[in-house]
Amino acid sequence: MTARAGMRGLKKQRRIQVIALAAAALVLATGMIGYAMRDGINYYRAPSEVVADPPAPTELFRIGGMVEDGSLIRGAGETVTFSVTDYGASVEVSYTGILPDLFAEGQGMVGLGRWQDGHFEAQQILAKHDESYMPKEVTESLKAQGYDPARDGGAAKE
């Protein structure tokens, strides 16, 4: 009986070790997934939000709205500056690179970048891909300011 009782104790101990090892592996995997995703989450901010509460220079975020008419300035090489608005506030954007073909004044855009010295430095610029599409966040922020992109040409609140 002593050998049998010793065998049961050994099985019980082995089961506890396996459960503890599985729990440790689960915690490690969860931690690794969270660490890997930390740079993959970019929060959207409307120009009004950026002006009201400027983000830290280290925060990577998306900004979107309409490119203001008459604000597009092409600099040396591939550098451009323009203003993006949600009709509540405007933010100056600078970008070095090739703009998408559908990028134009008076059209919707989304940029990915950082807030630096009072303006948005974009790393990436996206433009709407056809006449009817605009990202949900941009549409919501424009509607909050009284502009309805669904109407023909929309209209800003006076």
Rank of each mutant, 00 (worst) to 15 (best):
T2A: 14
T2L: 13
R8N: 14
G9R: 14
K11R: 15
V18W: 01
I19D: 13
T30Y: 01
G31D: 02
G31K: 02
I33G: 03
G34P: 02
G34C: 03
A36Y: 07
R38S: 09
D39V: 09
I41L: 12
N42K: 11
N42T: 08
V50K: 02
V50G: 04
A52W: 02
D53N: 15
P54M: 05
P57L: 05
T58L: 05
T58D: 12
F61W: 08
F61N: 08
R62G: 02
V67R: 06
E68K: 15
E68I: 14
E68F: 01
G70L: 09
R74W: 04
A76W: 04
S83W: 02
S83Q: 15
D86Q: 02
G88N: 10
A89P: 02
E92P: 08
E92W: 06
Y95K: 02
G97P: 01
L99F: 08
L99K: 01
D101R: 10
E105N: 12
G111M: 08
G113T: 01
R114V: 08
R114K: 11
R114Q: 10
R114D: 04
W115H: 09
D117L: 14
F120T: 01
E121H: 10
E121G: 06
E121N: 12
L126A: 12
A127Q: 04
A127C: 06
A127M: 05
S132T: 14
Y133T: 13
Y133L: 10
V138I: 11
E140W: 10
S141L: 04
K143N: 13
D148W: 09
G154I: 06
E158L: 09
E158V: 04
